[in-house]
Design a protein around this nucleic acid. Structure first.
Lengths: 372, 372
DNA sequence: TACCGATACATAATCGTTTAGGTCATGCTC
DNA sequence: GAGCATGACCTAAACGATTATGTATCGGTA
């Protein structure tokens, strides 16, 4: 029969003090082997499970890190989480995920609530997939909670904050260079709002690239989900009455929206309009046509970010023990960029590169970024 | 300048007692309007944010529910989470997600750790997407934590526990009936391990259906991820040396594995082998060929489960206030089944049902389940 | 013998809230 | 003008762990 009990119950059952029970259970020394075994046995029999609230209250211990995101439907999110978990699992951190989107759309009020919520829990650190509002950054700083941005920029008011991002500018240059080989002259970029700050570099790279190759770039903005993307694109095409040579979709949900519209209107890709996207995902080689995409290495980004955050937290704890300031210390090496690959398939207009049978076995070739 | 402070700071700043501050902040009565405003103002200025650990310790308040899952890469998971969030958001619950898989594979030791972890946090309730081990069920019961299963069966030792599942048996009958219209004689079911208990009903329905329609059903088991599925299927095909008339893939990752293998081997779907899967997902109509799938209504399942759990927790709190037992009470109406739809596209061998242009606009037809 | 250090344990303060059980005016009733 | 309810507030005891500080015992040493 399993029961529930507190530490006091264990103390009473063994006739030992709370002090001894606590030390025995935590594995600290100052307890004889005999007492320890006695305590462990009693704890097991009584079904003792510590009360986390009490532990957290007493030690100022913070062993939870939070991930803030606004687009769980974007497939890169799952990979990134896998990377984070991987990096954090060995050191027994707990990871909580805070979604600041309502029905897929970012919600500012929800961001405020989430930040308060995380401070209430006194989390040890925050990994954010989007640029946070300055007032929320101020709050986190006031409570000495370190923050790292993944695939998003720190707000301008805090540009020394750590971050791990894809080299989005370089990635866009790669895209542009590839488009140039196809001699496309009319490029259309379908992109999400500035709230997701990767947009800036992605757009800039494409702009510079278009300029360099003498192409014309048009940019249209849409909300960050497939339905909006489809509608926005439809409206744009209706307005202009003509198809661009190539459509560049800013991320995974936007590619989905674009493909759906193409289907609905019978637009043949790549013959009538080429398509190229950001964010590799599981089904990308199986859709019709197979998609040419940038591969973002989300897992690596997540892992890197988690490791850096861990380092910052450790240094912070160290400094605090030494009686120093509690504020986290951010160093230049805490800002990293990860290169992306271009995975070339069919949607950009490239023909199968090899005989059918072989292409099928390994149907993507990667073009790694030139050293910068 | 934002600062941090405790309730005691607010108390001192206002000259009011902790009692009054607490009541003022929580909105309870027994505080004059004047004092309340005074407190609120001071709290804002001082940057007061409550300490959750202290709150949770003091009130035995439990306002967190946990979702246990082992396959976040399965797309139905995201939809289900959306449903859960939707149902829980209005009542300000906090949702935490516990993943008991390591690199995609279920891990029993991780389940044990996760349950302990949840009890440590004294969560108010658990929503589990997989059948839990009997000893963990016993633990949760000992601590009076209600559990509801979504798209998975309660363990046999606790078959009165609440659950919301797809009517998997009925769904499989629908699949079987459709296969019969194609006059397929040789069916191959590729399915995940029994740990995910939906397998039982899915397999049983298909077996009964094959029997009824005079078809031959072969079942092969694989680990629950795309890579394993591809390898297992490859090995099976090598062994038998022949293709079945139709391959039924037990869920989303398994369909992915099957599609990849077909591509690699140049197997043309549906001409050489038809394919049918469970779990609708965003890209299903855009892959080549568009996939015939069961649509599970994951969001509805998630929402239902969250609502039922909320009801059980409320009743529990009510009973406790009345001085009654703390054990949650499970009623027959807490067990529900949700019907699934069959979405017919091309992979089963069905031809486009309408002229090309129109098919594109709405390229799926649904076949709703017959009343049972 | 007197003293010391180590070991094993206990006592009690502490973390930051909530809340049961008071006190003390104030105003109303008869 | 005594009795009493009411509102606004306070004091202090929880909640369940961790840990600084204290104490008893014992073997060894000078």
């Amino acid at each position: 029969m399993v029961r529930k009990s507190t530490m006091r119950d264990v103390s009473r059952a063994t006739g030992l003090s709370m002090f001894t029970v606590s030390r025995a259970l935590s594995g600290a020394d100052g307890v004889s082997e005999e007492s320890r075994n006695h305590v462990l046995k009693a704890a097991r029999e009584l079904g003792y499970i510590p009360n986390r609230a009490a532990q957290e209250l007493r030690r100022a211990s913070r062993d939870t890190v939070a991930v803030i995101t606004a687009s769980t439907s974007n497939s890169y999110y799952l990979e990134m989480m896998a990377g984070i978990q991987q990096a954090l699992r060995p050191s027994s951190w707990t990871v909580v995920v805070g979604d600041v989107a309502v029905d897929g759309a970012y919600d500012a009020a929800l961001e405020d609530r989430m930040i308060k919520r995380l401070i209430e829990s006194r989390v040890a650190g925050v990994i954010s997939t989007l640029t946070l509002k300055p007032e929320n950054m101020a709050l986190l700083s006031a409570w000495d909670i370190p923050v790292i941005f993944v695939d998003s920029a720190p707000p301008e008011t805090a540009d020394d904050f750590p971050s791990v991002t894809t080299d989005n500018y370089g990635a866009s240059l790669m895209v542009g260079a590839h488009l140039a080989t196809h001699r496309f002259a009319d490029w259309l970029l379908l992109i999400y709002p500035l709230k997701w700050s990767t947009r800036i570099e992605r757009e800039r790279g494409l702009r510079d690239s278009a300029m360099a190759h003498g192409a014309r770039l048009t940019v249209i903005e849409t909300e960050n989900d497939a339905e909006s993307a489809e509608a926005t694109l439809a409206a744009h095409l209706d307005r202009t009455g003509a198809l661009p040579d190539v459509l560049i979709a800013g991320n995974n949900p936007l590619v989905l929206g674009a493909m759906k519209l193409a289907r609905a209107r019978g637009i043949v890709i790549p013959d009538q309009m080429a398509l190229i996207g950001y964010d590799e995902f599981a089904w990308s080689s199986l859709v019709d046509p197979p998609l040419t995409l940038l591969n973002e290495r989300s897992e690596e980004i997540g892992r890197e970010a988690a490791l850096i955050l861990g380092e910052i937290i450790d240094a912070q704890a160290e400094a605090e023990r030494g009686g120093g300031s509690k504020a986290p210390i951010y160093l230049p090496r805490h800002q990293r960029q990860v290169a992306a690959d271009l995975v070339i398939r069919r949607s950009c207009g490239c023909a199968p590169a090899r005989p059918e049978q072989e292409r099928m076995r390994e149907d993507s070739m990667t073009l790694s970024e030139p050293p910068s």
